[in-house]
Amino acid sequence: MSDGQQKKTFVITRFDPDRDDAPRKQAYEIPVHPDWKVLDALNFIKDEIDATLSHRWSCRMAVCGSCGMMVDGEPRLTCKEALDQYGDTVDVAPLANFPVVRDLVIEADGFMEKLTSVKPWIIRAKELAVEEGPMRQSPGELEEFKQFSMCINCMLCYSACPVVANEPEFIGPAAIALGHRYSLDSRDEGAAERNEVFRGEGTVFSCSFANECSEVCPKHVDPAAAVNQAKLNAAIDWATSLVLSRGGSK
């Protein structure tokens, strides 16, 4: 580190449940490299200044989804955001709308439950035997759901969503997008089952189309599109089931 090097101050939210009643802020002034991402600065602080700082990270190539945090108030993958776009003081906080376990680490188990609830797997009336070989799927059919399969579960969308902030039952953008992804997959036969989930409490119809999830998605999944497409599908499914069940009962 040479003397003329640029410095930045990182104001980081700290919280140790063993010692702190509530989260507090701690500032670190460090020399920064022009090529650094925000994550590099956090790792520098952890290695060189304060080993008690806790944060999650792994792949540092924006695909594992571990390192989401609020950077200057916006949910970001810290391994993806270049430092040079920020000012001399950078505020780093844990993802909004999540309980905080420690420092920059949030409680992710709630998300895992929501993800499971949408049945994000291929559902078929009759399971295929492996001997039958791969199913056919045209590039066009693949295109119909491909975008929604790009979700890395980084949960940034949950941090941006005003409905998530106020309605704990809301399954939320990423989980709905993944459920919808499977319903759109030509190999899947479980759309009706998932639509039943989507018609329940705190699901697609809770969404008020703020579109914030899509604004902050680092992988351009556009969860808002998925959620609102799922609304239409769930409604159509509900209407047809109404008509069919009436017809059947006569």
Binding site: W121, I122, L128, V130, P134, Q137, E141, L142, D185, R187
Partner: peptide, 16 residues
């Protein structure tokens, strides 16, 4: 093939 049956979005040829 099992991965295909489980939903892996393998890229496809024109014939599927």
């Amino acid at each position: 093939t099992l991965l295909e049956h489980w939903g892996c979005p393998w890229s496809r040829n024109e014939d599927g």
